[in-house]
Design a protein around this nucleic acid. Structure first.
Lengths: 110, 110
DNA sequence: TCAATATATCAGTATACAATGATATATTAT
DNA sequence: ATAATATATCATTGTATACTGATATATTGA
């Protein structure tokens, strides 16, 4: 086997995509595409429970996809980099062409 | 709650990212970036077991990220669209800047 | 200081899914 | 037709992880 990319490198890269690969996290990233939002606004926009949103935000924060800023008693989140939005846009565009396949994909149940 | 994107749409988009979010599948996509490969070559390049590689290929195929072509008794796979490679490249570039965060991310264990 | 609001953390539970091993289905060659 | 090679499928198992509910930790205002 060639194994051009070593295991650790692959793990890190796949981890980055994990940030995008759950509907709840994706809805958060989506909401932040327009403008920074407080946790409360994110909860409102996504319909997630407070603790669930907070958990996912922690995950996205750890992975460096979003950045948190404390403003008084509020915490405002924004996308860490334009490329996060770029990846979302690219996926959206790609999906427009392969959507049927994804719909028909039965390997993932959720 | 605003819920600008409905549940089904989010599920489909997050599903697309699932294709990228596992090291085994990512190693397959990575291998196919250079050129089309047969299943055997993919197994060789990634070090995955035959059945595991085949399962993941089925997943990637269903989701429309790769395309299979039967050539005699071989099946050759290639990326379905340039944007698949583009997403990989964008993520790689983004990772160069946020890698530390991803390394330190403890929410995912693998 | 105390109450109220905003956010984070954590244990417990249920579910999703990656990997394996065994088997089935092509396809080609003898 | 049979054997050999290439790929796909499937049931099983273990592990990872999303969600909930309860609680903890700010921060602000009265």
């Amino acid at each position: 086997m060639l194994l051009t990319a070593n295991k650790k490198e692959l793990a890190v890269r796949s981890k980055l995509f994990r940030g995008f690969s759950d509907s709840s996290r994706l809805s958060i990233l989506d909401a932040l595409r327009d403008k920074p939002l407080t946790v409360g606004e994110i909860v409102e926009a996504t319909g997630l429970s407070q603790s669930n949103a907070s958990n996912h935000l922690g995950c996205l924060r750890d992975c460096g996809l979003v950045v948190a800023e404390q403003n008084g008693r509020y915490v405002t989140y924004h996308l860490s980099d334009d490329r996060v939005g770029d990846i979302l846009a690219l996926a959206e565009s790609l999906l427009a062409d392969v959507a049927r396949g994804v719909y028909e994909c039965t390997r993932y149940n959720q």
